[in-house]
């Protein structure tokens, strides 16, 4: 068997070992590769940064543990930005396994910026039904969330006073790994004319470029790279920036493997005389 054929039949366990090393080594020995903030993330940052003082920002954090590596650092970074600007933050999740991630993320961001639950932010918890919750909140947030995640009636939460529906919300931030973003765009943006910023997983982000050009989205933060850019814009060094070295090296490994596979394919074809 020629060398080219051996490469083409490369044992996948070797690829697994290379990927494992590519992930682990940069996390153990960080290189801190430079990160440039792209226009989409800059637009998201500017949209939040330019909101008037005292604005209320609604976060819909629709994700579960499988994508937490990408979206959890994003949540913390954006929420810290809102807290630094002294905005009122109202968060909810439309995923049943969401509260377990969302609640600690809000707590981490709030503690870092010295904010207090119910005074500066509220976590409404989980509610099933994407469209019905979104449309229902347009009429009354209390009809969908009579009590918050901790069982406190919304009328007893100081930060919720005067917030009845989308009318009192300055911006919607949706961080998601699902079609929840499509529904938010249809209902909160399309029907209630709320400005919206989207944070999505890297594989999903490409789906939402049409909404950027139509201005239905004012900013798009894609994957761990987007989260790392936001952290850089915030002058933070969080989990996303820590993870970017590993992601970079794994991408390089996969690219080199693809190139190697193609070189071997051409060499093998030349050796057998096939075209």
């Amino acid at each position: 068997m020629s060398l080219a054929d051996r490469i083409l039949r490369l044992d996948r366990r070797i690829i697994f070992i290379l990927v494992a090393l590519g992930t682990a080594l940069p996390l153990l020995v960080p290189v801190n590769l430079p990160i440039t903030v792209t226009p989409r993330v800059e637009a998201a940052y500017d949209t939040i940064d330019q909101l008037p003082a005292g604005s209320t920002v609604l976060f819909s954090l629709d994700y579960e543990p499988d994508v937490s590596a990408e979206l959890q650092p994003m949540t913390v970074a954006i929420m810290r930005h809102c807290f630094r600007k002294n905005f009122k933050v109202v968060a909810l999740t439309l995923y049943p396994a969401g509260p377990g991630l969302v609640e600690p993320a809000i707590r981490i961001a709030a503690e870092a910026e010295h904010k207090v639950r119910n005074k500066d932010y509220a976590f409404l918890g989980y509610k099933s039904g994407f469209q019905t919750v979104m449309i229902g909140m347009g009429e009354s947030i209390r009809s969908q969330f009579p009590v918050d995640f901790y069982g406190t009636p919304l009328d007893s939460i100081p930060v919720m006073r005067g917030i009845r529906n989308y009318g009192e919300i300055a911006l919607l931030v949706n961080l998601t790994a699902s079609s929840a973003a499509d529904y938010w765009i249809q209902f909160a943006v399309g029907r209630y004319r709320k400005p919206m910023v989207l944070g999505a997983t890297a594989v999903m982000a490409t789906d939402y470029y049409p909404y950027l050009s139509s201005k239905q989205l004012l900013g798009l933060i894609g994957g761990m790279k987007g989260a790392a850019e936001y952290e850089k814009r915030m002058d933070l060094f969080g989990d996303a920036r820590r993870g970017m070295d590993a992601q970079s090296l794994v991408h390089v490994i996969v690219t080199l493997l693809v190139i190697l596979g193609n070189v071997a394919l051409f060499a093998s074809r030349r050796g057998t005389g096939t075209r």
Partner: peptide
Amino acid sequence: NSPLASTMFALLAFFIASAAFRAFRAR
């Protein structure tokens, strides 16, 4: 729940790397 779900998703990195090596061929 959280570590199990994260682990399942993380396994994709290995399978995608292996699949990319075998599928991305300039045929």
